[in-house]
Design a protein around this nucleic acid. Structure first.
Lengths: 337, 337
DNA sequence: GTGAAAGCGCTAACAC
DNA sequence: GTGTTAGCGCTTTCAC
């Protein structure tokens, strides 16, 4: 490890060129009131020295950094990760940089309000625009453009929304059209908006079809395969077990398949299965699973696109963009007579 | 986009408290030379106003930011994403914050040297420690601790290394022990170190066993499922096709399975398959695939742990840490007679 | 125990 | 065209 001398500053460049720091600054910012000759020379020296302006200093002095900040609680959460793909794609080839900010301090993070804390850390400084991945945007205030990713309804910022409810309804309508009357539901993690919305769709579709909502058919899952497995077992053990199961996400659906295999139940002969899938690749190798696909990476992509528009001073076509879901029918469902 | 006024500054807090900005600064930094009374009051006002010190300003003035910077070219690359999981886990509950930095400017990014550019942007300012995800660390200079993630051999920094070569050897030795003599290899993306190392292991294992290295058995892949599919087809079409295929990653291995299915070849009766798997979950739903598992998230975790140690002024047990691979034998291989 | 003042590296007036 | 200068929000001596 080489700990060299302290990093280069604009002053070092200026001295090396024999000009003043403001001239260097002008070159850095592509101002046009510099002689071609000087411009050229400064450029050369900058390249030679490998100088880069310090983000910290630039942020402080000027309001233009071309940096987009992404605020996220749990880095590593598959949800966020999938979003990053889309965000990265949207940023690619543009003149923007990206900073994903996350904190290890659970104290500042676990309490609601982490978004606010993070936001004020970056905003008013380093970033020119913000993408927040959080359900609660109510308390957020900022001077720069902000786009929220899948916030809940009280949101006042431009946002991209996922069609959780609609997707669940589509899945249920399909199952119902196949003749299923008793359809089990494995919920997502309690407290998450996505989970509530999917459950809401499940209930609405039943009511719409004039079918009863049997609480015994609703099993509390948590988006994991293991819990999906146990929920399915509970469902199988019912005196009057369901002929179909709708799982609130891909992992739960895989758990259902595991449980069916374990119980010697054949899909789709004995049981029809549909899963909500945020990361279509996740079930890509399980072609026999019907899914409601929702592309999280598309959400990230679109949110970033919206933010960039805002940062460029353009206005949005619509302040809120809903990302559609798509029912991908494969071999895991069969009509019942 | 422009900035309005009104981000809260330390001066606002000072005025609201009727003290000087230096007193507020002392409270912010937990200095002990402030009277309990004042301390308490300032704390309260800070909480009430929802003030947070600006990262930009703090970075500039002091050397201590408690922020770890992660430099990455391609956000969205599954490799990086998996790393983030481990990094996030390592950071969780600590007093450190994390900044993942990535640039959309292909000009600064595509050319070798992006690492250097990014580094100097963050270093000497915002971050106290750096994690770089890049093969080439040779040109990097920095004043703060730096840990490289899977760099190639000319690296001088503390690093975590993956056992690509060793893993490939393990896979090959297993196949060879089963009696396979003609083993196909689907390479990773050309130019990547991981790819080279795995190929190196393939060749070494053959040589070690006194088996010939047949160039026709080495198909150039690119870590995608589609290319894996085509490579496998090429292999099948050989006058003397292989009895086993080792694919340089999970996706290619899935492509091989696709191709085998398409060609009516049964695994493992007609063909044995092993894949190198960076993201064990990726093939989790394909239990019939033997894999060399290497946990990328573990690499991220360990690298972060090392960096934190360094940032705390402690020294490392070893400057370089090798992440082991694990051969997970399942039903995709059979002995040939 | 607290305040005043000097910068950190940079940009943006404003001079010349 | 180019240099000088005044801060951006903060930490840190150094007085009091």
């Amino acid at each position: 490890m080489k700990h060299n001398k302290s990093s280069l500053t604009i002053r070092d460049v200026a001295e090396a060129c024999g000009v003043s720091i403001s001239t260097v600054s002008r070159v850095l910012n592509n101002k046009d009131d510099v002689s071609a000759e000087t411009y050229e020379k400064v450029q050369r020296v900058i390249a030679e020295m490998g100088y880069t302006s310090s983000l910290a200093a630039t942020s402080m002095r000027s309001r233009r950094t071309n940096v987009i900040g992404v605020l996220v609680v749990d880095l590593g959460d598959p949800f966020s990760l999938e979003l990053f793909k889309g965000i990265g794609k949207a940023i690619y080839g543009t003149e923007y940089d990206l900073i994903i900010y996350s904190s290890g301090r659970i104290a500042a993070t676990a309490q609601s309000g982490w978004e606010r804390w993070h936001l004020s850390r970056l905003d008013g400084g380093i970033t020119d625009g913000i993408l927040v991945v959080t359900p609660t945007t109510a308390e957020l205030t900022t001077n720069s453009p902000l786009v929220a990713i899948d916030p809940h309804e009280h949101n006042v910022f431009p946002a991209v929304l996922s069609a959780n409810r609609e997707g669940a309804i589509a899945a249920m309508e399909y199952l119902i059209s196949l003749g299923h009357r008793r359809i089990g539901f494995i919920t997502g993690r309690q407290g998450l908006v996505s989970s509530n919305r999917r459950q809401q769709g499940y209930v609405e579709a039943l009511e719409q079809a004039g079918l009863p909502v049997d609480p015994a058919l609703i099993q509390p899952g948590d988006y994991t395969r293991e819990t999906g497995f146990r929920c399915a077992q509970n469902l199988f053990a019912l005196p009057d077990p369901p002929t179909a199961i709708f799982a609130a996400n891909d992992q739960s659906a895989l758990g259902v398949i595991d449980a069916a295999n374990a119980a010697g139940l054949h899909i789709p002969d004995h049981l029809s299965v549909v899963g909500f899938d945020n990361i279509p690749q996740a079930t890509g190798s399980v072609p026999a699973l019907t899914t409601v696909d929702q592309s999280l990476s598309e959400m990230g992509y679109i949110a970033t696109t919206m933010l960039i528009k805002l940062m460029q001073g353009k206005s949005l076509d619509a302040p809120v963009c809903k990302i559609p879901t798509r029912l991908v029918i494969r071999d895991s469902c069969r009509a019942v007579k």
